[in-house]
Design a protein around this nucleic acid. Sequence first.
DNA 1: CTGCTATATCGACATCTGTCGATATAGCAG
DNA 2: CTGCTATATCGACAGATGTCGATATAGCAG
Lengths: 127, 127
Amino acid sequence: MSKSELVVLGQDDAAVCCSPMVREPLGEEAAVDLARMFKALSDPVRLRLLSLIASYEGGEACVCDLTGPFDVSQPTISHHLKVLREAGLVGSERRGTWVYYWVLPAALAKLSSLLRTPSGTAAGDVR
Amino acid sequence: MSKSELVVLGQDDAAVCCSPMVREPLGEEAAVDLARMFKALSDPVRLRLLSLIASYEGGEACVCDLTGPFDVSQPTISHHLKVLREAGLVGSERRGTWVYYWVLPAALAKLSSLLRTPSGTAAGDVR
DNA sequence: CTGCTATATCGACATCTGTCGATATAGCAG
DNA sequence: CTGCTATATCGACAGATGTCGATATAGCAG
């Protein structure tokens, strides 16, 4: 068991392994920063956009691929993409006529590990 | 290695292991549901509350322990706790004069696994 | 240059959100 | 019952957010 535990720790993404918020109180600054990222995820359209971008082949998608699947206008999609970009969740680049967006895995991994529960847990063990 | 992988899968909380949003597009309903949970996490005070509750010994805290550390009024704390509760992130119970709150690990685990990146990930891998 | 398409920005608007003070409710202590 | 403490609810208000149509900008095709 102890062995598997090591493995688990090791397989997490780099620089992301050790900050479960359920273990120690979040600092005020960190909370503000994280809240900004979660806010970007707090809209159904943005969640779907993120998911759609990530599941495109190559991990990136042209905006032209993203306006179709939604019931909202093109300016609205553009706005949501901007929110995701400013939150540091996606990157973008213009290539000729089109603009491509891709997910920044490190950002998602950061949030994911933050929400990680001691799990099965006994992990809470410590105290 | 393959063995450790099994371990990893096994240690996740039940029903939470396999839905990384970066793999397949999120459905509309699922997105609405998840956005509601992320919205609850999109405020610095709520993030700190959640973290504070979870890190209390026993994993639960009395509201009286939660009003002190913040600069906002008691009604505001009460409001935020309600938001967290309605989002399914925490549970609560009255015991005599006091009301206790605790984190619901399954909810956090659900979000955590959703944000999980294919990991090691070279995310951009393909290209 | 003149169009044409793809994307972003702007301005407006209705709705939602965080916050407060005031007040109501629940439970304990006399 | 009468107070006292802990927590929740209410009503109000300023500011943020999602959405739109109109319009601006970027790049390609003639």
